[in-house]
Protein backbone atom coordinates (compact mmCIF):
# COMPACT_ATOMS: atom_id res chain seq x y z
CA UNK A 1 0.00 0.00 0.00
CA UNK A 2 1.33 3.41 -0.99
CA UNK A 3 -0.06 6.72 0.18
CA UNK A 4 -0.54 9.13 -2.72
CA UNK A 5 -1.89 12.30 -1.13
CA UNK A 6 -4.87 13.78 0.67
CA UNK A 7 -7.98 13.46 -1.46
CA UNK A 8 -8.54 17.20 -1.29
CA UNK A 9 -5.26 17.80 -3.10
CA UNK A 10 -6.72 16.24 -6.26
CA UNK A 11 -8.53 18.41 -8.77
CA UNK A 12 -11.25 17.12 -11.09
CA UNK A 13 -10.07 16.22 -14.60
CA UNK A 14 -6.43 16.42 -13.59
CA UNK A 15 -3.73 13.90 -12.74
CA UNK A 16 -0.87 13.63 -10.26
CA UNK A 17 2.13 11.30 -10.23
CA UNK A 18 3.12 9.11 -7.29
CA UNK A 19 6.43 7.31 -6.73
CA UNK A 20 6.18 3.69 -5.56
CA UNK A 21 8.72 2.09 -3.21
CA UNK A 22 10.11 -0.02 -6.06
CA UNK A 23 10.89 3.12 -8.06
CA UNK A 24 7.98 2.75 -10.47
CA UNK A 25 5.48 5.54 -11.00
CA UNK A 26 1.70 5.72 -11.07
CA UNK A 27 -0.53 8.44 -12.49
CA UNK A 28 -3.65 9.07 -10.42
CA UNK A 29 -6.65 10.86 -11.92
CA UNK A 30 -9.86 12.24 -10.48
CA UNK A 31 -12.61 12.63 -13.07
CA UNK A 32 -15.45 15.13 -12.97
CA UNK A 33 -17.91 12.52 -11.66
CA UNK A 34 -15.67 11.83 -8.66
CA UNK A 35 -14.17 8.54 -9.87
CA UNK A 36 -10.50 7.75 -9.17
CA UNK A 37 -8.28 6.01 -11.70
CA UNK A 38 -4.63 4.93 -11.50
CA UNK A 39 -2.46 3.98 -14.48
CA UNK A 40 1.24 3.45 -15.04
CA UNK A 41 2.78 6.88 -15.43
CA UNK A 42 5.09 5.85 -18.26
CA UNK A 43 3.79 6.57 -21.75
CA UNK A 44 4.58 3.39 -23.71
CA UNK A 45 5.09 5.28 -26.96
CA UNK A 46 7.76 7.68 -25.76
CA UNK A 47 9.03 5.94 -22.65
CA UNK A 48 8.68 9.21 -20.75
CA UNK A 49 7.01 9.26 -17.35
CA UNK A 50 4.40 11.85 -18.23
CA UNK A 51 0.87 10.38 -18.42
CA UNK A 52 -0.12 12.20 -15.23
CA UNK A 53 0.45 15.46 -17.13
CA UNK A 54 -1.94 14.56 -19.96
CA UNK A 55 -5.26 16.21 -20.64
CA UNK A 56 -8.21 14.30 -19.20
CA UNK A 57 -11.42 14.14 -21.23
CA UNK A 58 -13.63 11.71 -23.06
CA UNK A 59 -13.71 10.01 -26.45
CA UNK A 60 -17.25 9.03 -27.32
CA UNK A 61 -18.18 9.25 -23.66
CA UNK A 62 -15.29 7.01 -22.50
CA UNK A 63 -13.01 8.77 -19.99
CA UNK A 64 -9.44 9.00 -21.31
CA UNK A 65 -6.11 10.64 -20.64
CA UNK A 66 -4.13 11.83 -23.64
CA UNK A 67 -0.36 11.48 -23.58
CA UNK A 68 1.27 14.89 -23.81
CA UNK A 69 4.08 13.49 -25.98
CA UNK A 70 2.50 11.94 -29.08
CA UNK A 71 -1.16 12.43 -28.14
CA UNK A 72 -2.41 8.83 -27.94
CA UNK A 73 -5.49 8.41 -25.77
CA UNK A 74 -5.62 5.80 -22.98
CA UNK A 75 -8.85 4.64 -21.39
CA UNK A 76 -8.74 5.57 -17.72
CA UNK A 77 -10.72 2.50 -16.70
CA UNK A 78 -8.75 -0.14 -18.64
CA UNK A 79 -5.45 1.48 -19.67
CA UNK A 80 -6.18 0.49 -23.28
CA UNK A 81 -4.78 2.73 -26.00
CA UNK A 82 -7.59 3.79 -28.35
CA UNK A 83 -5.35 4.40 -31.36
CA UNK A 84 -3.51 1.07 -31.00
CA UNK A 85 -5.69 -1.41 -29.13
CA UNK A 86 -2.79 -3.87 -28.85
CA UNK A 87 -0.99 -1.41 -26.59
CA UNK A 88 -2.10 -0.71 -23.06
CA UNK A 89 -0.74 0.55 -19.77
CA UNK A 90 -1.25 -1.24 -16.46
CA UNK A 91 -4.17 -0.23 -14.24
CA UNK A 92 -3.68 -0.03 -10.49
CA UNK A 93 -6.27 -0.37 -7.73
CA UNK A 94 -6.80 2.96 -6.00
CA UNK A 95 -9.05 3.96 -3.13
CA UNK A 96 -9.80 6.74 -0.67
CA UNK A 97 -9.58 5.87 3.02
CA UNK A 98 -10.10 8.47 5.73
CA UNK A 99 -9.62 11.24 3.19
CA UNK A 100 -6.34 9.79 1.95
CA UNK A 101 -5.77 8.42 -1.55
CA UNK A 102 -4.00 5.05 -1.49
CA UNK A 103 -2.67 2.63 -4.06
CA UNK A 104 -3.24 -0.92 -2.87
Amino acid sequence: MTVVCDFEVLRPEQGVAALLPDGSQVAVFLTADGTLHALDNIDPFSGAAVLSRGIVGDRGGVPVVVSPVYKQAFELATGKCLEEPSVSVAVHPVRVRDGVVELT
Binding site: C5, A17, A18, L19, Q25, I42, A48, A49
Partner: peptide, 11 residues
Protein backbone atom coordinates in the same frame (compact mmCIF):
# COMPACT_ATOMS: atom_id res chain seq x y z
CA UNK B 1 5.67 13.33 -7.32
CA UNK B 2 2.77 14.38 -5.15
CA UNK B 3 3.87 11.88 -2.47
CA UNK B 4 7.59 12.67 -2.67
CA UNK B 5 8.15 16.33 -3.55
CA UNK B 6 11.71 17.06 -4.63
CA UNK B 7 12.56 13.45 -5.42
CA UNK B 8 14.06 13.31 -8.89
CA UNK B 9 12.25 11.29 -11.53
CA UNK B 10 14.25 8.03 -11.73
CA UNK B 11 13.53 7.61 -15.44
Amino acid sequence: FVNAPGTPDPT
